[in-house]
Simulated scan of single mutants.
Amino acid sequence: MAAPRRWVDSGADFGATEVAEVQRIAEEVWGFDAGDLVGGNTELEEYAVKFDWNISENHRANLRYSKLEQVRVRPEASSAGSLSLSSNWFNHEKTVESYVGQVFSDWTENFSTEFKVSFRDYSAIRVTPTTAPTIEIYFDDLIANNNPSFGDFIRVGTERSSMGNTLLTETWNYFGAGTWTLGDHDVKFGAEYSDNEIYNYFSQDSWGNYRFSSGWGPISSRAT
């Protein structure tokens, strides 16, 4: 579904005129599209297939494959006194792909085994509509001696924690077990091993983080 509108022009120290001016200056001075309040759609696709093989009367196997792809629009929070335009939103793109193979064997009337191998590939990446820094424009709250950064604000540019935010994992799992029947008792034994590779990249404010007063004079900035 489309991302909802998350701000109402009511009670803030800025209005539609100021929003339009921020959009214009972002385009003409900073060279990027500040966006608006309209986001994209959340998309979800999922696939799964399973193959069963009766090798013989005493042996059987199966193979399963599944894949899930999701793109979710994540609007940044806005309120009556703050507004994040869509350049400050991000898409959270997730993919989960897995393979599972199993073999079941009855070797005798009293002994059976199960072996399983699985692989899981997972990725979660924040994708941003721009490479601009985070920019907050504060508006005067008309309270004497108040720091300008205490007022209402409009936020544009890249969301500060999405300038570098990627998680990738690859997981192999191996499992084997046997069941030995002794009269009225079953003796079960087995082993399991997992190997997990993780890549986690996080870079906050790496493209810059700036604050301005409503006259576009600097209040503060952070950049690495």
Rank of each mutant, 00 (worst) to 15 (best):
W107K: 05
N196T: 12
S161N: 09
L85D: 01
Y199F: 04
S162D: 12
A191H: 04
G151Q: 08
Y99S: 04
G164E: 09
S87A: 01
D184T: 14
F119R: 08
E159I: 07
G190I: 06
G151D: 07
V156D: 00
I219N: 06
P133V: 03
G101F: 09
N110Q: 05
E136I: 06
Y199G: 07
W107T: 04
T181F: 03
R211D: 06
G176T: 03
Y193S: 14
F150G: 10
D184P: 08
T134D: 12
F189G: 15
T179D: 12
Q204C: 05
A223G: 15
A191W: 14
R222I: 12
D205A: 11
W107Y: 10
L167K: 12
D195G: 04
W207H: 09
S213V: 01
I143A: 06
G178M: 02
M163V: 07
V117N: 05
F90H: 13
T134P: 04
Y174F: 15
Y99W: 15
P218C: 03
E93P: 04
S149W: 09
D195R: 07
A132M: 02
V187I: 12
M163W: 00
D140K: 08
S112T: 12
Y99K: 03
R155N: 03
G151R: 12
Q204K: 13
G183A: 08
S86Y: 07
L168K: 15
D152I: 00
L83P: 03
S123F: 03
E192P: 08
D186K: 14
G164V: 11
G157S: 02
W89S: 04
F150Y: 15
A177S: 13
S161L: 10
T95S: 03
T171I: 13
D186V: 09
G178F: 06
N146W: 00
V100N: 10
S221F: 04
L168N: 15
R222G: 05
Y199S: 10
